[in-house]
């Protein structure tokens, strides 16, 4: 029986950039084993939400609780060590390093096993010695997403997975992530999606952000994809 504690709880989280507040007190819970979609238009606060959970941004008030302990002020490194992994919508790769060096960094000390990434993204195999800055947008996205396959995580946050990817490939990736989450009952995935049509099939929980506030939550069946 897995523990009954939720994996992550956000309590009235507020985040501001200078004079502008991007999140106006968002509260939600991520249970272990779930795949959650955070949907909303660009500028609704999805990226802000994900970035503050991963520690890239400091909330101005509110709490972030990880399995019962408060991590609101914890550093990126501490959260990563606990198992929070963010794949940002841009800048998810080390641009000055080669594809292989990127993958080795993502894999940490288990550097030998890059096979998983090459299996999922055969395109990367041809590019191992190319610098990431020289990759196309789609190829960079594949490289960034390889991290989810190589690095250990318990909570995976993916910002705009389908960015720059052909939809067939994006669809396959949603399935891969859902499998990864399903394989370990204590793992969860959060997907931030501006146009969630393709993602909805893979998720079990949906949160809708509108102008920095949580407008609705529910299961995918509650929502009509066309109106999101």
């Amino acid at each position: 029986m897995p523990s009954l504690l939720p994996l992550l709880t956000l309590d009235a989280l507020r985040v501001r950039y200078g004079p502008l507040e991007a999140l106006h007190g968002v509260s939600l819970t991520i249970e272990p084993g779930e795949v959650t979609a955070v949907v909303g238009r660009n500028g609704a606060g999805k990226s802000t939400l994900l970035r503050s959970v991963a520690g890239y941004l400091r909330p101005s008030s509110g709490r972030i609780v990880w399995q019962g302990s408060d991590i609101t002020r914890a550093s990126i490194g501490r959260r990563a060590a606990a198992g929070v992994l963010l794949i940002p919508d841009e800048g998810g790769v080390f641009r000055s390093l080669t594809v292989r060096e990127n993958l080795e960094l993502f894999a940490g000390h288990r550097a030998a096993d890059l096979k998983l990434a090459f299996e999922t993204f055969p395109a990367l195999k041809e590019l191992t010695s190319r610098r990431a800055a020289l990759l196309s947008g789609g190829e960079q996205q594949m490289l960034a997403l390889s991290r989810a396959l190589l690095a250990p995580w318990r909570l995976l946050l993916v910002d705009e997975l389908s960015q720059g990817l052909a939809s067939a490939l994006a669809g396959r990736l949603y399935a891969v992530l859902a499998e990864l989450a399903a394989a370990h009952p204590d793992r969860s995935v959060v997907l931030a999606e501006p146009h969630p049509r393709a993602a909805l099939a893979a998720v079990s929980q949906v949160h809708v952000l509108r102008r920095g506030e949580l407008a609705a939550s529910g299961s995918p069946a509650d929502f009509d994809a066309a109106t999101l």
Binding site: S136, G137, G138, M142, L169
Partner: peptide
Amino acid sequence: PNGAGKTT
């Protein structure tokens, strides 16, 4: 597909 050279 991605990388086909459309953006280039």
